[in-house]
Design a protein around this nucleic acid. Sequence first.
DNA 1: TTCATTTATTTGTCCTGGACAAATATGCGT
DNA 2: ACGCATATTTGTCCAGGACAAATAAATGAA
Lengths: 307, 307
Amino acid sequence: MTIVQPALSIAAVERETGLSKDVLRKWESRYGFPAPLRDDKGERVYPAEQVGRLRLIKRLMDAGLRPARIVGEDEERLAALARERHVRAGQPEAGRVEASALEMLRVHDPDGLRQHLRRLMLRQGLARFVLDTIAPLNHAVGEAWARGELDIHEEHLYTDSVQWVLRDAIASVSDRQGRPRVLLTTLPEEPHGLGILMVAALFALEGAYCISLGTQTPAEDIARAVRSHGAEVVVLSFSIAYPQRRVLPALEELRQRLGGDVRVWAGGAGTARLSRAPSQARLLPTLEEALRALAEWRAERDSVLSS
Amino acid sequence: MTIVQPALSIAAVERETGLSKDVLRKWESRYGFPAPLRDDKGERVYPAEQVGRLRLIKRLMDAGLRPARIVGEDEERLAALARERHVRAGQPEAGRVEASALEMLRVHDPDGLRQHLRRLMLRQGLARFVLDTIAPLNHAVGEAWARGELDIHEEHLYTDSVQWVLRDAIASVSDRQGRPRVLLTTLPEEPHGLGILMVAALFALEGAYCISLGTQTPAEDIARAVRSHGAEVVVLSFSIAYPQRRVLPALEELRQRLGGDVRVWAGGAGTARLSRAPSQARLLPTLEEALRALAEWRAERDSVLSS
DNA sequence: TTCATTTATTTGTCCTGGACAAATATGCGT
DNA sequence: ACGCATATTTGTCCAGGACAAATAAATGAA
């Protein structure tokens, strides 16, 4: 059996790498890479090797590097850059918990991982579990993935296990009468839902009523859901991979659709490096900050009620 | 407080409606709709009203209508078309189960819904629950959504509840030693994961080992996951919203990346109306057919082993 | 030197208008 | 009514140009 090197159309490459067609074409003309072949219709055909390199480039860009530096480079130099980033960031807190969890990921033991996490949760309590275990663990997993040490499906598995454990916990402390009523989700381009899940866990513990819409909800639908659930706060999460330039416009747009008395809080690594603060939304760079926001909301409400 | 009619960029409309920029521009020049305004940079700006109409059009297209018929039409006529479709398809099996579940969706009672579903599952057993309850229920929810009677966040809520109940069940019957080892997921443009979850439940009951990767896994990562899990079968699901013309190429592409001894099975409403059968993959138009495929795989393996 | 402000470059997104093939509809002969 | 050949429809791709926001580099003041 001959193995045909799979070769992808520009649309397929867009799907696989997350780089838009426009970007792929522009890079080609600006940096000379990628350099796809052409089929008989004159359309671009990308060999698998180049697609792999594009993935690597995308990861490095998510880590903050700029295209001009890396798009021209060859495989080897890219790998070197990824490694360099590794030593700078990875070392300080590679605790035991992370190590054992990462280990389970690599040997593909979903049940073991889930059990491990659940045990930790019971031992530490939900709040500490989220703050001290899951948060750094997410970080470690993200780093490992950026370094190419983890496949996407392994990251998927991790996400899944954590989700499972957290949602179970949230369900058991959830109180429909709790206040404020918090709606949590992500915008359509953001598939990562762990951030809001962590917030949901902490908020639910504090007695808020959390409604999680899952990920990728269009702004219009968020607005509708806010109305039909009577939510007072909307929490969004932006991962580091979310295009920076779109965070502020997205928040503005959402604001437009909501009544003025609904709060918008935005968290996640994607909001940490914002140049200026958004005008009408509050940033939650850390989970601690999220708890502070909740406390302040309550203080404010109480003062209004008593006056 | 003045409510500013939100107006969206072409990229935002693409996200919200699922219609690509190219399509939006072409429709504009071919049918005169949408007819966006322009901002000071000369870029298209879509008023909310037109975006709403585009959503409706997209739904009708997913139902099989062609653009030339509907893109020019006004709101009223579109609504009429949607209604017409309704009476034709909706009536026959609007059973009691569906009605009560839909009711709970509309009053936003997540806990009640989940409890209701779980009770049904215990009463019927997992297999019957999936085949006789969840499958028609999915259908009913999909129809209701297509008719505009359900908001996306309500559909989200439904999906979530079902997922919760099914995964719980799957986990408790899962057997790591089971055969075949089946990997289930969807491709990057397909966010709907209920289909594979139903299959996973049925297969797990039959003693197969199911590895669910969640949704939206790039083909390359599917291939890697197949290798690292030693999977023998890959199950994909395509909803009716998946662009028809891309189903076959996508299957071909995936085949190229997998070894020849790995089976590819494709199910979901998106595969039901395919013009021709794919060359190297098996279609699972119904859940019963999925079970048949599993049985045949086993028969085949046994005959090989015994010869 | 260090910091803040101005100027230059980089970079993603959008634009027009044209080409094409696959999918679908229509007309025709049987 | 059915099968086949010819139109039409429709989504995707292409080139190459324009622009503004983001970022880097240069400049001058403290």
